[in-house]
Nucleic acid binder design. Sequence first.
DNA 1: TCTGGGGTCCTAGGACCC
DNA 2: TCTGGGGTCCTAGGACCC
Length: 396
Amino acid sequence: VFVSSEATILHADLDAFFAAVEQRDDPRLLGRPVIVGSWVVLAASYEAKARGVRTAMSVGRARRFCPGAIVVEPRMVAYSQASKDVYRVFEDLSPRVEGLSIDEAFLDVRGVRRLTGPPPKVAALLRREVRERVGLPITVGVARTKFLAKVASGVAKPDGLLVVPPERELAFLHPLEVERLWGVGPVTARRLHDLGIITVGEVAELGEDVLVRLLGRAAGRQLYALARNRDPRTVRPRRRRASIGAQRALGRAPTSLEEVDASLAGLVDRVARRMRLAGRTGRTVVLRLRFDDFSRATRSHTLPYPTASTRTILDAARSLLVLASPLIARRGITLVGVSVGNLGDGRSFQPALPFDRDTDALDAALDEVRLRFGSAAVTRAVLLGRDRPAMPLLPD
DNA sequence: TCTGGGGTCCTAGGACCC
DNA sequence: TCTGGGGTCCTAGGACCC
């Protein structure tokens, strides 16, 4: 893997994205604390953050921190349009863009030097263009690796630009607290703190085997490499998404299984609709649950063939709900979600495999599966049908 | 810091196959 | 009847990200 010896990777991150869109579209909100969310905070403007408002906090709590806050209902359509506009700016600047989420992306600008200039100049131009063409503030980190670029933008926020030159990398990296590292969350941070480790520099003094024992193979190796400033990842245009899902919090009041089932139908309808709209189908249906004590559980079922059919997905999801009903009875449910993974291309087909009926009809159905999806799908269909003939149907 | 909605990746055991 | 090494797929849980 070729890694440039120069700082040529940009990490561009919109500041308080949803709130900034609201401030852009309603000038009365400029300079004032803005909270986006209906009953939990999805985003807060920097004026609100300064008073202690945080994402995922309840709006009631946020109001106590910041009585003057203006609470705005989310407008997802406006945000996704703004995101598209910003990505257009990115793609006009460099052909090598890797989107991370609705509001941040990596750009490799190595190739645009002769056309546009050196990376710091491209970064400044990017910030100006986003401001002029979309009307939003954006922070950019520039470094030799993705990881350092991402950390740099985090440090430079809001509305900033920070370049980490190759010779200053360790001086920049080692004093940082471990929490700043991409991939270190509350659990990992606490495990490190238990060892008395506060900074990245201290992590760099640990052996790889120590970190692997502490955090697992992948996470340990990753952290070891990052702390020693090794990050060979390159900027790659984003792959297609691997799952599509929806979920709904149910509140703390007891919820009957019938109500959960009704919510589930709404969620499946939304998911299946989005899948058909995106031209995707999937095989693995996952039921996601959260309980009174905030513990979680998932139940999943893999269909023999890909589908985007509301009926098929709902049947599977309801079977999984029945499977999980003892758990729900014991722990009380506060969230239900469903997602479909194992996503393939758009081909969708739901033969009703008549395992318990006449063999001619079964053969014909399997022939069709083979024709459309190949013999591997036939194997899966037979295995599944034989082991669990009732699986796709709700046990009555 | 008592918690929304949308995702990604990793681990580990078991079934099954050659 | 006992046995190895290597691989894929499925399920469930968990950490993490924005």
